[in-house]
Simulated assay, not measured.
Amino acid sequence: MKLASGHKAPLFVVKDIFGNTVDLDQIQNQKIMLSFFRYAECAMCNLQISKIMKHKDSFAEKGIKLITVFESPAESLKTSIANRHQFDFTIIADTHRDLYKLYKVNPSWLKTMRTITIKGIQHLSEAVKLGFKAGGKVEGTLHQIPADFLIGSDKNIEIAHYGNSVIDHFPLEELFKN
């Protein structure tokens, strides 16, 4: 069963791509946006990260810590995400899919196929214009679908958003409208 608003967030302790310990339970007095992506060279994932970067001040103002999870190994994520985007957020390499399983973030061929729309093509075109390569190295599950969880300082899930396509993340505008 998928997680939903009101559920206790599953806690975890892992290392980020730089070897720092990330203990969800130890993040105090702060909301957490836990976002699941595909892999380091995914053009659509990099496009979403670039959109997030446009809202970095809003994350700070709202006191929201961003934690991202990818299937790629740490070295690939350092090159394709951390060095490229220059944004202070936590990146976790989950090559064994432990956090994906914990948060019930599953791959789906059907949802991947839903990406092949005019909107999906527009997203890919926008990503390519920003310099992200279409068809980059796949280091994970090609048909992985994103998910986003806003976790309150009480460690309860406030928003649980399981994507319906490769480009379906929780709208950032909705996150910051209050």
Rank of each mutant, 00 (worst) to 15 (best):
I167V: 11
I49C: 08
D88Y: 00
N20K: 15
K119A: 15
V105R: 07
F89W: 12
P73G: 05
K133C: 00
I167K: 03
T21M: 07
K119I: 11
N156C: 00
N178E: 13
G140S: 00
M113T: 09
A9T: 09
L150S: 05
F18N: 15
N46V: 07
F132D: 05
G163S: 07
S153P: 01
I159R: 04
G6S: 12
D168P: 11
G140Q: 02
I81L: 07
G136A: 06
N46W: 00
T90Y: 02
L99Y: 04
L11M: 15
D148H: 06
F36A: 07
Q26W: 00
N46I: 05
D57A: 15
S72D: 06
E174I: 00
Q30Y: 01
E61D: 15
I116F: 15
E71Y: 07
L172R: 05
A60M: 11
D23A: 14
Y39E: 10
L110Y: 06
G19Q: 08
K65T: 14
K137Q: 13
K119E: 15
D16G: 08
E75H: 11
Q122Y: 02
Q30C: 12
V69H: 02
M53H: 08
I52P: 00
Q26C: 07
Y100N: 08
F18G: 12
D25F: 13
Q122W: 03
F87P: 02
K129Q: 13
V22G: 04
S58D: 15
I27H: 08
G140W: 04
V105A: 10
I32M: 10
P171W: 00
H96D: 15
K65Y: 03
I52G: 08
D168V: 08
V69D: 01
S35M: 12
A60I: 15
E61H: 03
S5H: 04
H169V: 04
I32T: 11
L150A: 07
I157D: 00
F37Y: 15
D154C: 01
V105E: 09
A43G: 03
I118P: 02
K111A: 09
I151N: 05
P171S: 08
A82I: 01
E75Q: 11
N46C: 11
R84D: 05
Q30N: 14
H7V: 03
T90C: 12
F36I: 06
P171Y: 04
I27P: 09
K62T: 07
G6M: 13
G19D: 10
K111T: 05
T79R: 14
Y103W: 12
A127M: 05
L47M: 06
D154L: 00
G120M: 02
L110H: 01
I91C: 13
F12I: 12
V128W: 04
D25Y: 13
Q28T: 15
A74N: 00
S72F: 06
